[in-house]
Design a protein around this nucleic acid. Structure first.
Lengths: 246, 246
DNA sequence: TAGTGGTCTAGACCACCGG
DNA sequence: CGGTGGTCTAGACCACTAT
């Protein structure tokens, strides 16, 4: 059973989508919604906070909330594992290991995974695809304490995240992602069936457990015609806001 | 005077940075913090929610919060104007207009700005830099109702956002950003002093007022060696969304 | 000035984690 | 099992918006 505030958030999303609250219109006041759903104002605030974070509505002190959009930009792509994300999009994730070998931890490996330099770590190069079409190259380095388990996985495993969770209870709880762009190298071009120097969207990420212990880090390169990232933002404060020129 | 929960959030950030709560350690319980700061549990929860969103701490039902990092990188949640962002990084934003002309709204312009096709809109091409070095090309199209004001700005205006706010009270309240990568065209390469086909980090964005009315949309291309973006995410808590083309 | 969202309190119960 | 965070209530006052 989902929490009441989540149910209300879901109902509001549906109401917005079916244009009961059209884009540009104003949402009822918190107190009205509270009465309508038979909950306290705090619970309503939890619900609308979720929609605000999704960019569906905008909020300002003193003014009714405004409907900004009627859909999340490709909802549910929540930056989870590639396989989970693909499934949520109604597509099939594929993947296979191109190469897999132990190498001594480089200085960069040591820094990102909080390990000592020289420790043998599993380096895996995977190509992953949507409905069979390759869209992503992953170059992942695993911490020493998880390397053996990863090495034992079948080379065509569709969801490493899920398998590791099932087999060891490991949870990929947090991630830090740095996004930029790079030119495809010879290897990248070959694996993704592109020309060399084609632009690729790169995400370098470190994944950790609940308590912040690094599990893996990865250099992921996406075909930019197949995958992009979306983010909403709103101004936090009225610091810069000043109304009406004299 | 900042809200009490913001003061507490700020104190916790400082405490984490000075390693009173080192990375990997656990924060005191909510009730302890509440007693410590002389506030109710709800106020403490507002404060720690902010740190959670920033990726500084992790949260799970039943377990103490964990310190994940002692600093925060520039996050997408607070994507601001280029000038403000540069200032926050301690650098100086520069910029100048390369070309500026009215063109009839294309189908894409009309869709993104919610206007009719064919309406004359101001198209501006700007090069922007950090400390004088060019890092970004902006191709911006302004809605018809703001075009004249923008056209009248000085061509070397460092912060268009700020000038428009001062002169008309306009507030850039919301933004939606789609991030991918493209190869530099001949013009891009020339303006950024790069080779053609160099990879560029592209952000296509639509900016709106408080009530969701589009003000401008822009195709921004960054030199990936000069600018990248960082995003934190936790399981079931995500600002960033990954989307497929199409 | 009336209405609205933002903040804060002081309780309560439950789901979950850990030893 | 005790402790903890997640949820929810029913108030109160304040800051700000809109008219």
């Amino acid at each position: 059973m989902a929490a009441r505030h989540e149910q209300i958030a879901a109902e509001l999303r549906r109401a917005i989508r079916r244009e009961e609250y059209p884009v540009g219109s104003r949402l009822p006041a918190e107190t009205e919604l509270a009465a309508q759903y038979g909950v306290s104002r705090g619970t309503v605030r939890q619900a609308v906070a979720a929609l605000t974070a999704e960019g569906l509505i905008g909020s300002r002190q003193g003014a009714r909330r405004v409907v900004l959009a009627d859909h999340r930009s490709q909802s549910f792509g929540e930056l989870r594992s590639f396989a989970q994300w693909a499934e949520a999009m109604g597509r099939t994730a594929t993947g296979h290991v191109v190469s897999q070998e132990y190498r001594p931890a480089t200085a960069e490996d040591a820094a990102r995974l909080h390990l000592d330099q020289g420790v043998p770590l599993l380096n895996v190069l995977r190509v992953r695809g949507l409905d069979g079409e390759p869209v992503l190259i992953e170059r992942t380095v695993y911490a020493d304490w998880i390397s053996p388990t990863v090495a034992a996985l079948p080379p065509d495993c569709a969801s490493v995240t899920q398998r590791l969770n099932e087999e060891t209870g490991l949870v990929f709880a947090h991630g830090e992602h740095v996004i930029d762009a790079v030119a495809a190298g010879a290897r990248d071009a070959d694996l993704l069936a592109l020309r060399r120097t084609s632009p690729l969207l790169r995400v370098r990420r470190v994944t950790t457990t609940h308590d912040g212990r690094p599990v893996e880090w990865s250099d992921d390169r996406y075909r930019p015609d197949a995958v992009s990232f979306t983010v909403h933002n709103s101004i936090a404060n009225n610091a810069l806001v000043r109304t009406t020129a004299g």
